[in-house]
Amino acid sequence: MAGNFWQSSHHQQWMLDKTDLIRDRQHDLNILSDDEYQKIFNFFSSIIQVLGEQLKLRQQVIATAIVYFKRFYARNSLKCIDPLLLAPTCVFLASKVEEFGVISNSRLISTCQTVIKNKFGYAYGQQEFPYRTNHILECEFYLLENLDCCLIVYQPYRPLAGYVNDIGHDEQLMTYAWRIVNDSLRTDVSLLYPPYQIAIGALNLACVMLGKENHKSWFAELNVDLDKIQEIVRTITNMYEMWKNYDEKKEIQGLLAKMPKPKPAPQR
């Protein structure tokens, strides 16, 4: 593992270019609009979040699982693997990488069944969670191969805590900015920007939401690319605007039906 972000595989292999990202998604974007694509990823990020919470995982583990999920589909079409299978596989792998400990196979499957039935029944109706342990284990190898075994993910939480302390510790500001970092996982910023820039963007947005004008001088003194920070803020703000007019419970079934799907495996 690299001792710092700049020497890590996260920086050297997984800081993607926006143009490349759009090009690699083209197969899916021929079927789905960009808005629909983002809504689908919002939905599966929610599944990973709820699954992680039910399994009592730390937020760092959940965030890493979501980044794995986003990275896989940054290089692959949605039709390669059912996202409903990849989501728990990412949770399973992230719990090991982040040294939370291995989740037992039976607990993972039973939690998936409960979460899909009780929390996301509006999307899947009466459908049971269709996968078993052998599917998760097989999918994990495929996920590892596609991530090129680059498993260490640097998250914005640690730099965020440092920045808040530097400004002058403010519990309300920390809480708001932390939530914005969590929300940023629903966008592409974790694929496009270093974690310290995401932390600054979240802090900037939290200050605006809370009306904390007195921190402007602190931001002005930062030696960072402010255009990049504004791009991050704009991306997260655009997602919040989308949420205002989006009723997931009414729309998601139609989006999942439209989504490109893997071909079923041949019957043996």
Rank of each mutant, 00 (worst) to 15 (best):
H169F: 11
L151D: 10
I200R: 12
S184G: 12
I180N: 02
P159M: 03
N182V: 10
I152C: 14
E140M: 02
V181S: 15
G162N: 14
Q197Y: 14
D148C: 05
E145M: 10
Y196R: 14
R186C: 13
A199L: 08
Y176E: 01
A199I: 03
W178H: 07
C150R: 13
A177D: 02
S190A: 15
L203A: 04
H169C: 13
Y163T: 04
E140W: 07
R158N: 13
T187Q: 00
H169P: 10
C139E: 06
L144R: 00
E138F: 14
L191M: 08
L144Y: 02
A199E: 03
S184V: 03
D148L: 07
E138S: 14
P159S: 01
E140T: 00
V189H: 01
C139L: 08
D170F: 11
N146T: 14
C139N: 15
C150W: 13
P159H: 00
E145T: 12
Y176G: 05
D166I: 01
A199H: 03
R186G: 11
D148G: 12
N165Q: 06
R186M: 12
V181F: 05
A199N: 00
Y157S: 02
R186I: 15
Y176F: 07
Y176S: 04
I152P: 15
P156R: 07
V189I: 13
F141E: 06
F141W: 08
L173Q: 04
P159K: 00
I167D: 00
L185I: 09
